[in-house]
Design a protein around this nucleic acid. Structure first.
Lengths: 183, 183
DNA sequence: CGTTAATATATAAATTATTATATATAAACA
DNA sequence: TGTTTATATATAATAATTTATATATTAACG
């Protein structure tokens, strides 16, 4: 369901193909909402049946035809209603590392520490990316649309990612220290 | 896939039914790994076909028969291998609130602030739960199994939840302040 | 004491999401 | 210059997950 609204959100800026939507998602929302290309395509089809979008085919030679999607008034209304409707519960998370850790009492200390150090590296790297690459991409898009409210909200979502990664690194540091003290 | 290993992890402590597995998940891993009952049942069936678990039916009168699952050596080996295999990438997240916020430049200030205040309340409440209820449940289980390594790891996962919620509250505070300053 | 909610157990149907496959061009690599 | 990789565009098959439905008992509520 939410993917529909994500796609409507993008199409509300400009008409584009499923392929282009995937590109935009990958460089903007992917840190808090992602989708595979195949899911985007099938979802767009359903959205067209519902009347949220229309599409027109642009014939190409040599490669598959492009299907360009455009948001319809019904889609715009649905999007706005969705945006105004509050999220009233906590979203359930899935954290593979935590699941594994929970059951890892039989795993030897060194193996476990190696796993945590590996994750620590990944999260530290990701924290850095939020401060450089992600920030640059957002600023670039913000300059194009020229809407300061967009820029503010986009940076708020980016900042969330940055805080999240920093928190995770701190937790990993603490957890590593705790495990090192055992036995 | 991961659900299979979660179930094996529980069954490695003791044999039980799908219903009981659901109960255990709800009070232990649900904050970082959850599943609906129907998914647990269908997954257990697949696991039996694979030879990871066996089951025996306990006939009851008045209510549906209980099917008690027991982990098999193949299941124990698969579990151990999975535990020892490091998570080598960052897990993709899905955060509905962030997705909405990203596209919310057309939502009026008051509506948006109300949404964020609502979320703030929920996360603050959840942070408190981690420090009291969740902590109590873990201590209770730890006392039963009497393994200090289990206790340490379980509390590490609980602590992650606590830090996560506190970080989210801080981010919401900042974001609310930023939005209040606009216009 | 009748109704509602919670406990206990599960299957069927629908939806969401991932993996695999397909095709053709252009660019990079060795 | 032959081969791999990236770009561009999608569909088909499979797997994961959620929602809806089913049934019976016991406890709580008013």
């Amino acid at each position: 369901m939410s993917l529909e609204f994500a796609l409507l959100g993008f199409l509300n800026y400009q008409s584009m193909t499923g392929y282009e939507l995937k590109q935009f998602m990958d460089v903007s929302t992917s840190n808090f909402w992602h989708a595979k290309q195949s899911q985007i395509y099938t979802t767009l089809k359903k959205m067209e049946e519902k009347g949220f979008v229309t599409s027109e085919v642009e014939v190409q030679d040599g490669r598959p035809d492009r299907r360009i999607y455009t948001i319809m008034p019904a889609g715009q209304n649905a999007l706005q209603a969705w945006l105004e409707q509050a999220v009233t519960d906590l979203q359930p998370k899935k954290e593979l590392l935590l699941l594994k850790l929970f059951f890892s009492s039989s795993v030897d200390k060194q193996t476990l520490l190696a796993q945590l150090h590996l994750q620590r590296g990944l999260h530290q790297q990701q924290a850095a990316l939020y401060k450089t690459e992600t920030k640059a991409i957002i600023e670039q898009f913000a300059a194009i649309v020229g809407n300061s409210q967009d820029a503010l909200l986009w940076d708020a979502t980016r900042h969330y990612g940055e805080l999240f990664e920093e928190m995770t690194v701190r937790w990993l540091d603490e957890t590593i220290a705790l495990i090192e003290q055992t036995e």
